[in-house]
Amino acid sequence: MVKQLSVFIQNESGKLASVTEALAWAGVDIRALSIADTTDFGILRMLVSDVQKAAEVLDSLNCIVSQTDVTVVAVPDQPGGLARVLGLMAGANIDIEYMYSLIGRGEEKAYMVFRVSDEDRLLKLLWENGLQTVSAAELGIR
């Protein structure tokens, strides 16, 4: 289980830049990032090297920040690797709220970040099928 930071971003030029600049200034590294957007606003989701520090910096900028538990799965980096994982989840009726991929990858593995309806069942499913999850420590996140 990994803590993800979610930030409310107003759909306005320069907003994303100011958030990333603040993290850079605080010496926080972004390990993974995705943006969900609508015409009015966006939700920036990130895995960062120091969750607490990043949350504090963004908080001081009056950003709306929340922390969410996500699962990082090591998916075999070969054709059909992701399809198999998603197929297993569909078969077990685990709904994906959102997913995105991690910057960089492990040896012969692609790291995918998942936010699902039932994390406990996902972990059990992955374990039963010999698939690995990646811990915060392995990602250099504290």
């Binding site: 993800q4 979610s6 409310f8 969900a36 957007d37 609508t38 009015d40 606003f41 939700i43 989701r45 709306i64 920040v65 929340s66 969410t68 709220e97 959102y98 936010r115």
Partner: peptide
Amino acid sequence: ISREIFSDTVKNLTKKG
């Protein structure tokens, strides 16, 4: 918006609106 209103999925946040 406030922390209490914020949700990190577009679906929930759009629903709030």
